[in-house]
């Protein structure tokens, strides 16, 4: 393996290691109790944590509900969208 190959692999690995955020956005339809229930169901969060995140969505318009490996973040985003929550993914800063 050449030096350039090593550099490429290192860069790719670094890019893969950057955590990804799963972000839930506020909307005027989803009930607060429902959003809490979905966060408990999808992530297994205790009710208190799920309710805190829900309130952040409600009051600040968005909340990072999970951070970590990209593949898992995509899976969670799909789950949240399947529950009709407006969700996006972003690279963690």
């Amino acid at each position: 393996m050449s030096d350039s190959d090593t550099q490429t692999l290192t860069r790719e690995k670094t890019a893969l290691d950057v955590p990804w955020n799963v972000v839930v956005h506020d909307d005027p339809v989803n009930l607060m109790g429902y959003v809490t229930w979905v966060l408990m169901k999808v992530f297994g969060y205790p009710e208190r944590k799920a309710a805190q995140l829900m309130m952040q969505v409600h009051t600040q318009g968005r909340s990072i509900v999970w951070s970590g490996q990209r593949e898992k973040a995509e899976f969670y985003a799909q789950q949240l969208q399947a529950h009709q929550l407006t969700t996006s993914l972003e690279k963690s800063e």
Partner: peptide, 13 residues
């Protein structure tokens, strides 16, 4: 299109 609507925030990525 609800599927597109819940993912709309990703549409410019």
């Amino acid at each position: 299109d609800l599927a597109a609507a819940v993912g709309a925030r990703m549409a410019d990525t």
